[in-house]
Design a protein around this nucleic acid. Sequence first.
DNA 1: TGACAGGTACGAAGCGCTTCGTATATTGGC
DNA 2: GCCAATATACGAAGCGCTTCGTACCTGTCA
Lengths: 130, 130
Amino acid sequence: MANRPAIRPTNAELAILGVLWSNGASTVREVHDALKEARDEAVGYTTILKLLQIMTEKKLVKRDTRARTHVYAAAVSEATTRGHLLSDLVDRAFGGSSLALVLQALSSARATPAELEQIRRLLDERKAPR
Amino acid sequence: MANRPAIRPTNAELAILGVLWSNGASTVREVHDALKEARDEAVGYTTILKLLQIMTEKKLVKRDTRARTHVYAAAVSEATTRGHLLSDLVDRAFGGSSLALVLQALSSARATPAELEQIRRLLDERKAPR
DNA sequence: TGACAGGTACGAAGCGCTTCGTATATTGGC
DNA sequence: GCCAATATACGAAGCGCTTCGTACCTGTCA
């Protein structure tokens, strides 16, 4: 694998990826509008453009330049990215123990019974895997 | 509560807090030595000093200046800090759903049966709380 | 065809984090 | 008393992230 530099998008990048993940491939304007709607204080159009250009260099997004108005698509999956960010936090603040993280998260999370059941099911799967 | 600015230590700060949490109140030299031992590439003595000074301003640590050699102690608890970092990540990358974070963490974590049992117990507690 | 709307490219400023060099004080031992 | 060792204080450089202004290009339409 020549994929060393690990996917660890910054805050602003994450916000943009969020739009691309939920809305699919988008133009700068579409991303800009989506963020303006979702956020309190909006950011300039050229800021989004610049970020998307940088993200293209970093291979976080793919750019289709065939039309005059470029179209951007996420080049990293949501699950993979979340996994990277999670294991990053585990290393930095939980002494490498994802279990410690899970326990901490569970002890403060408000979850519905249905959600707790979902976790329980996952635990069952993991209990007898092989 | 006048504690608005939320505890969100940076990387270097977290490393130092880790030492203070596990070793208790320490001098700059002690922190420096502990980090030198634990890490691959060490950082300069005055770097640790400067960081601790900044962390004192930020109220992340408390400083005892009675002796010539100052003694620093963590001013934030490990659990609280972890909680802040976690909810920060939940907001930034998991759409505000701690459950999504837990599921993601569980699906990639390698945990022993005993640990899984621990989670199960926690789930039971939360199931019928009131 | 000329002006405008809307697109991309790019340089640079501002800020926070991290790092360290250097200046300056204090202490202990000879 | 003096020197070496060891402290703290502080300024500033370097870097990455974020932001935006400005320049420039390209269609459209009256």
